[in-house]
Amino acid sequence: MKDWPLWEVFIRSSNGLHHKHAGSLHAPDNEVALKNARDVYTRRNEGVSIWVVESKHVHASDPSDAEAFFEPAKDKIYRHPTFYDLPDEVKHI
């Protein structure tokens, strides 16, 4: 059997939360992918909403390049609130 396309499955576990990657599955089209995702990943009410995306449409950053890729954020400690010195007497800030 030639494999059907691979789909990545994202599930929102309850309203107010992000969809989160749950896994993947094979299906001939988006409708079947959604139904299979329901049966495979939400047998115990794990979701209120499902996204399926064909895996070939996901573009990922390269892990071997991760150090350089994420480097720009590393030395910018002034982006964090703890970088700023304020006296203890100042409240609610």
């Binding site: 059997m1 599955l25 047998r43």
Partner: peptide
């Protein structure tokens, strides 16, 4: 049904390593 599901989770984990499900 759960066992079927478990098989599917695991096949999809194996596929992340470059294996073909078929």
């Amino acid at each position: 049904q759960d066992e079927a599901g478990h098989g599917l989770y695991l096949y999809s984990a194996a596929e992340t390593l470059g294996a073909e499900r078929s």
